[in-house]
């Protein structure tokens, strides 16, 4: 029976964490500053003009959305850039020649991506407190949504990295898929404030459930039922993980 390669798995995980920490200014600080600017500008401009949930200020409403949007973008960026870079630079051969299974490679990359997302989320949560009190109503829901969403996007980033032959491909994936879907997922608004068609369309966007379910963790209220958010994001995670593992096992674009 295959006993696995635990040391290999932890080494790859450590390496992927080490990789983004070595350039933390670019991978952690930069997205935190960007989100803090969103908070400053949108929060102050719209504060008092909008109230989305009863008893929740707009600034407080905005923080979980911005945190989740950063998790989405950074978990995706971590795996996609790492895989693409190792393919372009050629050093992916050292990984492919090693006795690591497809699942071990997948799990190490995804966990590192989730960790970067969590790190950015913690920094933003701390900064959010400087603007507005952010008590957590449903901590378990919040943690589950944070981890599931980070894992979804890290797996999606791996898929994009495997498919991309150059950084332009990755930028296209980010600009035409990740950015619009994350912006149009209720970061800045409740879908109830949208016209009926767009409100319904939002229900087919998995990023909406990530943000809405995460927000429920803070306030105990949300647009969609909390259980449904966990279910949708969980199913989405199974789907992207299955695709990514199938790609790794078949050697698609990695082992011609």
């Amino acid at each position: 029976m295959d006993s696995g390669n635990a040391v290999g798995f932890t080494t790859l995980l450590r390496k992927e964490i080490w990789r983004f920490l070595k350039v933390a200014g670019q991978t952690v600080t930069s997205p935190v500053i960007t989100s803090a600017l969103y908070l400053l500008v949108f929060g102050h401009v719209l504060e008092g003009r909008l109230q989305v949930f009863e008893g929740v200020s707009y600034l407080a409403f905005l923080v979980p959305g911005l945190i989740m949007m950063s998790v989405i973008q950074n978990a995706f960026a971590n795996t996609s850039s790492s895989v693409t870079q190792s393919k372009i630079m050629g050093h992916i051969v050292f990984l492919l020649m090693s006795p690591l299974s497809s699942f071990e490679i997948f799990a190490a990359y995804v966990l590192a991506g989730v960790l970067r997302g969590v790190l950015v989320a913690l920094c933003l949560y701390g900064i959010g407190w400087l603007f507005v009190p952010l008590p957590i109503a449903q901590p378990l829901q919040l943690i589950v949504m944070l981890l599931l969403s980070g894992a979804c996007l890290a797996a999606l980033g791996m898929i994009a990295g495997i498919m991309a032959d150059k950084f332009e491909h990755l930028a296209a994936f980010q600009n035409y898929f990740i950015m619009p879907f994350s912006f149009l997922s209720g970061v800045f608004y409740s879908i109830h404030s949208l016209p009926e068609f767009w409100a319904e369309a939002s229900r087919f966007n998995p990023f909406f459930y990530m943000i809405d379910g995460f927000r429920y963790g803070f306030f105990g209220v949300s647009d969609a039922p909390a259980g449904l958010s966990i279910l949708v994001v969980g199913v989405f995670l199974l789907l992207v993980s299955g695709i990514c593992l199938a790609m790794l096992r078949s050697g698609y674009r990695l082992r011609p």
Binding site: T11, L12, W18, R19, F94, P99
Partner: peptide
């Protein structure tokens, strides 16, 4: 490009358990 010679050797050995 992220790692030093020593770090790369440690990582490579780690991949092999």
């Amino acid at each position: 490009p992220f790692f030093t010679v020593e770090e790369l050797l440690r990582l490579q050995a780690g991949y092999f358990g």
